[in-house]
Design a binder for these strands. Structure first.
Lengths: 252, 252
DNA sequence: GTGTTTATCGTCAGGCAGACGACTATGATC
DNA sequence: GATCATAGTCGTCTGCCTGACGATAAACAC
């Protein structure tokens, strides 16, 4: 079938963001409250239209900056200027996913360190970090006893896919450090893994694994006691991006 | 930024297909010759517009059937009716990727057993299985000494991403069986791995690994000598989709 | 000081992979 | 028909990695 540029069905193209972070030992995602129909008042993933002259990655980085102030890492760039990891997740294009018109959404996944507090266009009540378990449970009740409405559109599916991608990706890459501040301890990194996977890991074996993988962690020389207990060495993320052999999640 | 459905930039949305197979010990991809500008006469990946009432996966399955006659597996379906594995790969939306207009392409990856011969709309000269090495080498010369033009659009990038996805995915899933006919031997499966990874594997260790992984292979009871030598047991793909522990590629 | 918390080092056994020897059962060749 | 080449299958051995877990170290709270 050759192209016929004059007779293509028009689509709207958006980017939606799964922005994950670890807060208080829980994996959390950024959610914004919808101010207009459809799904008015419901929580949704942040996102917006791709502009006419914009690349998809640019659009995602722009939305991320608008929602969180974070600069996305250029995947080519070596060190991090306190930014977030950003990658394309998947594309969702069911004809009925938006009741108004045909919208294809290119979802992106962002991993960010713990941030002070979200502000969606300056209005804090319309954006929050919510534990992904809470956002994904259907028709249940949140921690405060309020009934929880499911996410708007197909965003529960998108969030679920993003969480699974993150869970899988920290197995064989050093991406878990994207959840940490610039300097962090082995214990803090372990708590990231525990929060993302929802399991408890043996501190001794974890320490052996991450410090024994060349290029994963670089000691800065400093120590901290911010977690209590014996002072812990501080590290920065090393240059290695792939973990070989990987750190596999424990079996259920 | 709330949606403004009346003022979105219009996009064309296409699906492009990376259809991989193993032929004569080489990883090959399906390529079609473009019959019209831009890139007239150059090779490209098969693809086409997503229709107004079509899901992305449906559009990809339709294009795959049009180009190869293959039925795509429903990922939910258990057994294979001699079909191909089909999954979404990534989405490419650079504003300049198509000189005519703004086109966002949702690339899909298909893995197929060795097929007789491709026919793009009945014209065999406009479709072929080409070794991916040949399609990806820039400005070189093919096996027949003819100069090789690079693929049209950004299709080299898409093909490259698809190949890397396939190489990575057969490590930790049983997807390599998608390259095999319904019944196959351990040696045939090993040759698939060798072709996709471009390495030589130890037959004895490979045999131990794949026959020792529960659910990977199911013996059919039959044997064959189609590869010469001692008769080999025939297997079908088992129910397992994930390989745990994975079969990692050898280091370079 | 005693207890608690967290970090870090060590030990040991089991599992798995790479290297490779040995044997088996076909078809091809002389 | 004996010999050879080819491909398949079973074993062995060694080294690496992981999970389980003991032990020690260095801070803080009381």
């Amino acid at each position: 079938m050759p192209y016929d540029p004059s007779a293509f069905p028009p689509f709207a193209v958006t980017v939606d963001l799964v922005v994950l972070t670890v807060r208080r030992h829980a994996l959390c995602a950024l959610a914004v409250r919808r101010g207009e129909p459809p799904f008015q008042g419901r929580w949704a993933l942040p996102g917006g239209f791709v502009r006419a002259d914009e690349d998809l990655a640019q659009a995602a980085a722009r939305e991320l900056a608008e929602e969180t102030g974070l600069q996305a890492h250029d995947p080519g760039a070596p060190a991090q200027d306190y930014g977030a990891h950003l990658e394309q997740l998947a594309t969702y294009g069911d004809p009925d996913r938006d009741p108004r018109m045909r919208v294809v959404s290119v979802a992106h996944l962002a991993l960010a360190p713990d941030l002070p507090a979200p502000t969606a266009g300056g209005d804090a009540s319309n954006a929050r970090w919510a534990p992904v378990d809470e956002l994904l449970q259907q028709g249940g009740y949140g921690r405060d006893g309020e009934p929880v409405a499911p996410l708007a559109f197909d965003h529960a599916r998108i969030l679920s896919d993003g969480v699974e991608r993150a869970r899988s990706k920290i197995e064989y890459s050093s991406l878990a450090t994207a959840f940490c501040p610039a300097e962090f301890t082995v214990g803090e990194l372990r708590r990231v893994y525990e929060a993302v996977w929802g399991v408890a890991l043996d501190p001794r074996n974890f320490h052996r694994k991450v410090t024994g993988t060349p290029g994963f962690l670089v000691p800065t020389g400093g120590t901290t006691t911010r977690q209590g207990g014996r002072p812990a060495q501080l590290f920065r993320a090393g240059g290695a991006t792939l973990l070989n052999p990987p750190m596999l999640r424990p079996e259920v």
